[in-house]
Structure formats: C-alpha cells, structure tokens
C-alpha cells in the first residue's frame, strides 16, 4: 500500500497524543500525582497539540478536504467515521480536565471523572483508528489479530514515554513513569517482532485462480490493460520499501524500542537529575521518529489483493 505521509504522521502523532492524554487522565482520575500546574499545562498542550496536528494532517490526503465534516455522519457502518466522532468527543472531557487541572488547580471530583473519561475516549479513538485497517479484508497484514493490540500498545508506549519526558522536563522526575514507559516500550517491541513473524508467513487471502475465475493450473499475467502505472498500482501496488525491508525493520527496532529503553534507564534512579531528564526527552523524540518508520513499513509492506491481477503479488 502507498504510504501517504499525512496518514503516517496522523496515526503516529495521534497515537502518541492519545497515549499521553490517557496517561494524564489516569493520573488525575486515580489521584496518582498532585495537580501540578506545569505537568498539566505542558502535558495537555503537548497531547492535544499532537492530536490536533495529526487530525489536521489526516485531511491532507483527502481529495476534497473542505467536505471533511461529512465524515462524522456514517458512524453506524464506518470505522473511519467512528474514529472522527470519537476524536471530537475526546476533546470534551479533555477540555474539562484541562480546565480543572490547569485553571482551577484541582484533580478531584468532576475533574477526576473527566480524567477517567478522557482515558476511555482516547483508548476508544485509537481502537477506531486500528479498526479502519483491521477491517480491510483484501489486505492480510492489516486484517489480522495483531493490528488492534498493536495500535494500542504503540500508543501506550509512546504516550508514557512522553509522560516521563514531560515529568522530567518540568522538574519532577518520576521513576514510576519511567518504569511504566520502559515496560510498555519493551512490550511494544516484542509485539512488533511477533507481528512481523506472523506477517512473514501470511499468504494472500485469495489466489490468482480465484481472482480470475480460472480454476486449476497456473495463471500468468502476460499483458496489462495499460502501459503506464495507474491509480491502482500507485496506491495499492507500492513496492519501494520491500527492497530495504530488513534494514528498515532493524531501524524500527533500534529507534522505536531499543534506544528508548536504554534512554529510560537513567530515569529509574530517584536522583537522575539533568542527565535523566535529557535522556527521557531524547527517548520520547527517538521513539516518535522510530514509530514513524514503523508506520511507514506498516503501509509499505501491506499487500492488496488487486496486485494479483497485475501478477505482482
């Protein structure tokens, strides 16, 4: 599948944003930490900023972005529409949480409830994003039991790493946040490896025989309907990344999971100081870039059944 930059940035940025938002919501909801002004301000601005730029970027690949509002209407059948509704709905408790935490300086009562609601809405939105891909039967790598948990765990890992970075940067390093980020990052890395092992054994969900109705024997494409690349081949027949697959996968494992894990280690010490803070911020940046490459591969490695017709599968 063609990896559109706007969609890659959208899914990665909103994943991290919703992860951070959910983490902040849970902190407020369960009274884990006091209502620190800077944590609330920087954390919520960063989370909502990532979500908003991601959502705006997602309109970048639309043919008619001025009609994007129509996408809220078909939530009964469409995961893309549900994602839009859930994304907008999340802003309501998020604004309430911000109002309570940053403006009023409290995280109890209705603010705590808003926090829990934010965490639930954020998780729901990430689920909807994942289901857009997981519901597409022609693409075996996406229509897989690995897709939905994958999106959730990458969002959770990048969100908690961001939380650890925000905590460290606002002068209140919390070893427990580092530990959570570290565990989730390792879990996310393991999930990615398991997903690739699963995907590498996948066959197309159909064969050239069933695609053409020519039963038995071999069917070989000897002539295309057109001499140049068309929309189908540009969008669904993308092959560039497969050439460098192994190197890109190694880069993902290093940048998204291995290096952030190492960078989160200093922050586990109670008195990590400026080095711990710098490492946590670097971990978040590095993981975000790594996940961008991960998302690029998610698209580029996905094979669509239409390539069967072109003898490219």
């Amino acid at each position: 599948m063609h990896p559109a930059y706007s969609v890659i940035f959208f899914t990665t940025a909103t994943g991290a944003g919703y992860g951070l938002l959910a983490a902040l919501g849970l902190i407020a909801g369960f009274g884990v930490a006091p209502a620190d002004f800077w944590l609330g301000l920087v954390g919520l601005v960063l989370a909502l900023g990532l979500i908003s730029t991601g959502l705006l970027s997602s309109t970048g690949h639309l043919g008619r972005p001025e009609r994007a509002w129509r996408a809220f209407s078909q939530w009964r059948s469409s995961w893309l529409s549900r994602e839009g509704v859930a994304a907008v709905a999340t802003f309501l408790p998020a604004v309430l949480l911000g109002l309570g935490w940053v403006v009023l300086g409290r995280t109890d009562g209705w603010v705590a409830l808003s926090g829990i609601a934010v965490a639930l809405c954020a998780a729901l939105t990430v689920c909807c994003t994942a289901m857009i891909y997981a519901s597409l039967k022609p693409i075996a790598q996406w229509h897989s039991p690995f897709t939905l948990p994958g999106y959730l765990v990458y969002a959770a890992a990048s969100g908690t790493t961001l939380l650890a970075a925000v905590l460290a940067a606002t002068g209140q390093p919390a070893p427990i946040a580092n530990l959570a980020a570290l565990v989730l990052t390792l879990l996310a890395g393991a999930w990615k490896i398991a997903t690739w092992r699963h995907d590498d054994r996948l066959a197309m969900p159909a064969t050239i025989n069933s695609a053409t109705g020519l039963a038995g024997g071999t069917v070989r494409s000897i002539e295309w309907p057109h001499t140049e690349e068309n929309y189908l081949l540009k969008e669904m027949g993308y092959r560039v990344a497969r050439k460098h697959r192994d190197r890109l996968r190694a880069l993902v494992l290093f940048a998204a999971f291995a290096l952030p894990t190492l960078l989160l280690l200093p922050g586990l010490a109670a008195e990590a100081g400026i080095i711990g803070a710098a490492c946590a911020v670097l971990a978040a940046l590095c993981q975000f870039l790594g996940l961008l490459v991960e998302r690029w591969l998610f698209f580029a490695e996905a094979k669509h059944t239409v390539t069967l017709y072109y003898g490219r599968a």
């Binding site: 043919g63 008619r64 893309l80 189908l232 969008e235 669904m236 059944t305 239409v306």
Partner: peptide
Amino acid sequence: IGCKLCSWACPY
C-alpha cells in the same frame, strides 16, 4: 471527500 478508503476495501 476523496479519502480513498473504499478503493482499499475493494479486493477487485
């Protein structure tokens, strides 16, 4: 809106 999702959903 030209989101192209329908073309991804069509196996044909």
